[in-house]
């Protein structure tokens, strides 16, 4: 029998990772926009960032909110699935942040860097989505292992 962990604790940790990572990215983008970093093409920059973090963030926050409204019950998820989802989320958010922070040292313009980043962010985002899907599907009602 596989090791299992409490689903509520797992969801909250995932939510913290996503809220922290997305918060840093959003704050960075807000400051850059305020200082005119993207000029008249700020909407293009935001069009890159929002689909990059908001869908998964919305999923995580929605799951946590849903769980908070349920009657307390002991539910578990596969611990391996939880760890994969957690660390893939950390890696993905770190990759998005590094993409933003590395742009000034490259020869690429900000939007050109964003366009190019789809080469690596797209596949990783797909993996994160699958890992989170496995995390939620592996939920079982019962005691943690």
């Amino acid at each position: 029998m596989s090791e299992r962990t409490d689903v509520t604790r797992g969801q909250r940790r995932l939510a913290m990772v996503w809220l922290t990572g997305a918060g840093i990215l959003l704050l960075l983008m807000i400051v850059q926009t305020m200082f005119g970093r993207y000029g008249p093409q700020a909407s293009r920059a935001w069009s890159w960032l929002l689909p990059t973090v908001l869908p998964t963030l919305s999923l995580i926050v929605g799951a946590v909110a849903y769980e908070a409204r349920r009657q307390p019950a002991s539910a578990t998820v596969d611990r391996f699935a939880y760890r994969v989802a957690l660390w893939l989320s950390v890696a993905y958010l770190a990759l998005v942040l590094v993409t933003q922070l590395m742009q000034p040292v490259t020869g690429l313009s900000p939007l050109a860097m964003m366009d190019l980043s789809s080469l690596w962010l797209g596949p990783v985002q797909g993996l994160v989505g699958i890992a989170l899907g496995v995390f939620f599907v592996s939920r079982e009602t019962g005691s943690a292992g």
Binding site: V31, Q32, F35, G36, R37, L101, Q103, P104, V105
Partner: peptide, 9 residues
């Protein structure tokens, strides 16, 4: 210079 390039056009 890095911070200038990161935040300013």
């Amino acid at each position: 210079e890095y911070l200038r390039r990161l935040f300013v056009a």
